[in-house]
Amino acid sequence: MAQRPGARSVEDHAADVADLLAPMLTRPSETIRLDDALGRVLSYDISSPVDLPLFRNSQMDGFAVDAASVATVPATLPIAGTVAAGPARPADHVPGTAVRIMTGAVLPAGTEAVVPVEDTEVDGEKVTVLRSRTAGEFVRERGSDVRAGMLLLSAGTLLEPRHLGVLAAVGLASVAVWTRPRVAVITTGAELVDAGATPDPGQIFDSNGAALSASLRANGAEVSVVDRSSDEPDAFRACLRRAVARAELVITSGGVSMGDYEVVKDVLAGLGAQFGPVAMQPGGPQGSALVDEIPVLTFPGNPVSTMVSFEVFVRPLLRRAAGLPAVPTEDAALDHAVTSVPGKRQFLRGRRTDSGVEVVSGPGSHLVAALAWADVLIDVPTDAASLAAGDRVKVWPL
């Protein structure tokens, strides 16, 4: 079945969006404090500037000795001093003596092993070693973990707490990361009110602002503006001016359908925007523009349409721009039969099961709860009026 006359394919619209956003994909690097680097992506390889451990130290609480003095046990040795963890320059070791030492403390030059406390008996200023130790036992040699110049992390690493711990351990206070794309969100509609407000008849809560903002952040963007406009053109123009001044990309929701009070279409049409249906459900009404050289993508306002539009057209490009790995589509078997609208590519909300994938909602773009229940979008091809249980489908992980 051919797609509907006048409707563009998902592939064609995705290609146009990719062209529009191409300048955003080549990103500069920035150096930031390590404390701010969680969730950022390294822009270059990091090699260790130092050896780890930084110095030769004790692995145990015990006594530092030369191996020859404890070759035969029991061996009773005078205690020549104590070295605690922390700044210290212990005196060189005198063979035939023992130095009380704590975990992590600097080993005196000339000591070869550490005898753990549990293998000794202390009597005043003497210690009897009950078990012999060979050179190197319970000693952390300098550089035994990391050598200066060793590659620690590669460019493209998404920094997690474990990475930050390693970087701090080698003394790095800052790292170079890819800058995050700055994206602005504008929701539209006189009917929208904030969550927590008491809506009047005809009003609804604005979920698109929260959902888009969270989706952007989860995929590597910095959300620079979250604004909401009424259906008045001057109000939308004011929002648009604020957005393009602070962002590399602006995403709008609502105001692009075929009815009256389509404020996004009314304003952007005069600025050279392109609008038209895409052969998909949900998310058919789509548009794009350049405003002051800033790309503007216009999504339909129904919550499911907005989120499906983001997943299909923006998420892959945004992750690429942020240096994040792509989220590949998967292949799964349908648990049950589904029907589809001929000529439209369906993106059904689905959920993985032990045997494949199941649909968790009807196709309606107002069915918000199913987004929370779903973990994939089931991609039903344009020419498929129906699919049988067991048929293989492409799914987009959410």
Results as ranks from 00 to 15, higher is better:
Val223Tyr: 08
Ala218Lys: 11
Thr306Tyr: 02
Ser230Phe: 06
Ser257Lys: 00
Gln281Leu: 15
Val267Gly: 03
Arg217Val: 15
Pro328Met: 11
Val327Glu: 13
Val244Arg: 00
Leu212Arg: 00
Ala245Leu: 11
Val226Thr: 15
Ser309Thr: 06
Thr306Cys: 14
Ala238Trp: 02
Ile251Asp: 07
Ala214Trp: 00
Arg319Leu: 11
Thr329Ile: 04
Leu324Trp: 12
Ala238Tyr: 01
Lys265Cys: 05
Gly272Gln: 09
Leu249Gly: 01
Arg242Phe: 03
His336Thr: 09
Gly220Lys: 06
Gly220Ala: 12
Gln281Arg: 13
Arg217Ile: 14
Leu297Gly: 11
Glu222Lys: 05
Arg242Asn: 13
Glu222Asn: 09
Leu216Thr: 05
Val296Ile: 09
Pro325Glu: 13
Ile251Thr: 02
Arg228Phe: 00
Leu290Lys: 05
Cys239Asp: 15
Asp260His: 03
Val296Tyr: 06
Gly255Glu: 04
Pro325Ala: 13
Val308Thr: 15
Pro303Cys: 06
Ala218Trp: 01
Ala273Glu: 08
Glu262Asp: 14
Arg228Met: 08
Gly255Val: 03
Ala243Leu: 12
Leu240Lys: 02
Asn219Arg: 04
Tyr261Ile: 13
Gly255Cys: 02
Leu268Met: 02
Glu222Phe: 12
Thr298Asp: 14
Gly220Cys: 12
Ala247Met: 13
Gly301Pro: 14
Pro295Thr: 08
Pro285Phe: 10
Pro282Met: 04
Ala269Pro: 01
Pro303Asn: 09
Thr252Asp: 08
Arg315Asn: 08
Gly254Met: 07
Pro285His: 07
Ala269Trp: 09
Asn302Ile: 09
Asn208Val: 06
Gln274Phe: 09
Ala337Arg: 14
Val291Tyr: 04
His336Gly: 10
Arg241Ser: 12
Met258Lys: 14
Leu216Phe: 14
Val225Arg: 15
Pro316Glu: 13
Glu262Ser: 05
Tyr261Gly: 00
Leu317Pro: 00
Val263Trp: 02
Gln286Val: 06
Asp234Phe: 06
Val308Ser: 11
Glu232Tyr: 12
Gly301Ile: 05
Ala245Tyr: 07
Ala247Cys: 11
Leu334Tyr: 10
Leu318Ala: 10
Val278Ala: 10
Asn208Pro: 08
Ser224Phe: 13
Gly255Gln: 02
Pro328Ser: 12
Leu324Lys: 05
Ser229Glu: 08
Val327Asn: 07
Asp266Arg: 01
Phe275Trp: 03
Asp292Gln: 11
Glu311Ala: 11
